[in-house]
Design a protein around this nucleic acid. Structure first.
Length: 217
DNA sequence: GCGCCGATTTGCT
DNA sequence: GCAAATCGGCGCG
């Protein structure tokens, strides 16, 4: 493990602060996805507390984004919570077996969201091991498994006590951008650089796109 | 290390 | 009926 990971971990609970609604209700979903890198995800579900640092996200720009479930403002039973105000959770079942956790952003009626794709476990969930050859928390389905998130958490307010995000002061991580993973069907939107991740971090989804990423200054 | 494929069920055409 | 914001196992080399 590299030195700056250790330093960030040791900083943990000193200056932690829960993210409030105004953080989520801003317009620029890509900017929010970038700022979510390094933030903490905390779940207190069924008596377990799990804390993890976000190291990989993807922005989904709602109505204008062919990769979004709410493309062209499509409203169905599933996508309805995407239209809620920023600071709401959107969890859905993917490939019939995986739960994927998103943070809804923007004001009410704007179906933007950020998919949390990778986290580094800090506390709790230690007994849950991911598959061999893969780090726990690396990959969006692994995030939900680690945190204990299921469909039950869909539509939850993220400014609460059971599932929320927090920031620590003085935590800064390098950030890279790439196209999003698994959205080849989305035409031109498949090329958008809406995936943000910490380069060379072990809890980022293993993928060939990691080699093509551009490190932001 | 890489690429292919099956699992499993919902959601929407 | 089919494709899906994925994962892990297998075969190959």
């Amino acid at each position: 493990m590299q030195v700056w990971f250790r330093v960030a971990i040791q900083a943990k609970y000193n200056k932690m602060q829960k993210l409030q609604s105004d953080f989520y209700r801003r317009e620029d979903v890509v900017q929010i996805a970038r700022e979510l890198i390094g933030k903490l995800l905390i779940s207190r579900l069924s008596g377990q507390t799990v804390v993890a640092r976000i190291v990989e996200t993807e922005a989904y720009a709602g109505a204008a984004d062919a990769a979004s479930h709410a493309y062209r403002n499509r409203r169905t039973k599933r996508t309805e919570v995407l239209f809620a105000a920023g600071g709401t959770s959107y969890v859905y079942l993917c490939y019939g077996m995986h739960y994927l956790f998103n943070v809804v952003t923007g004001r009410e009626g704007i179906p933007d969201a950020v998919l949390i794709r990778g986290v580094e476990p800090i506390e709790g969930g230690g007994k849950l091991s991911a598959g061999k050859g893969r780090q726990p928390g690396a990959g969006p389905a692994m995030v939900s498994r680690l945190m204990g998130i299921t469909l039950e958490q869909n539509g939850w307010n993220l400014v609460g006590n059971k599932l929320y995000l927090a920031e620590e002061k003085d935590t800064e991580l390098p950030v890279a951008v790439s196209p999003r993973i698994g959205v080849d069907y989305a035409g031109g939107a498949a090329k958008w650089l809406y995936r943000l991740y910490v380069p060379d971090h072990p809890h980022v989804t293993p993928h060939k796109l990691n080699r093509k990423g551009i490190v932001l200054v």
